[in-house]
């Protein structure tokens, strides 16, 4: 089962300049009860997005028609807390292809990469530039070139290189996943077991 193939993203972006956004905020535990991977986008950032009566909270950015796009730009240490992969599903189900932050929690990063959601880690300075640009021009485009590993603010031409594990990059560009890869090495697994 391959994941989606992607090489290049160009889109407007949604700014969420909050640090330490944990996976309980991204998708609260009470919504984890589904048994398939789809549909979590409706409850993305549920408690920030809706009040107790399920009315949209006006001041939250996802309810603000000014901002939309395939790229979420968030404060430092995004995705900390619980290992729930539902966080990555919710973001991707909502329609995000990439999250940009100046730091990602370890497990979240892995989960995102396993689910066709690209975590792009940039410097604090570059992150500040993106926020500035988005606040001065809501239609500012962010370009992410996975092959070149470069992220660019289209308006200003500012760009920065980002790191990605070469293996994960190959998976995303070619649309294969971890299970495909390990199963292609099954003989080695059996050899290992035989030695135990």
């Amino acid at each position: 089962m391959s994941t989606k193939i992607f090489k290049h993203i160009q889109s407007t972006a949604v700014p969420l300049p909050i640090e330490n956004i944990d996976t309980d905020q991204i998708i609260p535990a009470r919504f984890l009860k589904a048994t398939t991977r789809e549909g979590f986008g409706n409850n993305l950032f549920r408690d920030w997005r809706f009040d107790e009566n399920d009315n949209p909270k006006k001041d939250f950015v996802l309810n603000n028609p000014t901002y939309s796009g395939k790229v979420l730009v968030a404060g430092k240490n995004f995705g900390c807390g619980s290992s729930r992969e539902h966080a990555a599903w919710a973001l991707s189900d909502y329609g995000f292809d990439a999250v940009v932050s100046s730091f990602f929690a370890d497990i979240f990063k892995g989960n995102a990469l396993n689910n066709g959601l690209l975590p792009v880690q940039v410097s604090d300075d570059f992150l500040a530039k993106i926020f500035d640009e988005l606040y001065s021009d809501k239609d500012a485009q962010i370009e992410i070139d996975l092959e070149q590993q470069v992220i660019r603010i289209s308006n200003t031409g500012d760009e920065e290189a980002f790191e990605i594990n070469p293996y994960k990059k190959a998976c995303l560009i070619n649309g294969y996943d971890d299970i495909d890869y390990i199963l292609s090495n099954k003989a080695l697994v059996e050899e290992f077991e035989a030695k135990q």
Partner: peptide
């Protein structure tokens, strides 16, 4: 260590 659901499947 803890793993995500895709890794559970893996």
């Amino acid at each position: 260590f803890g793993i995500g659901t895709s890794q559970v499947e893996q």
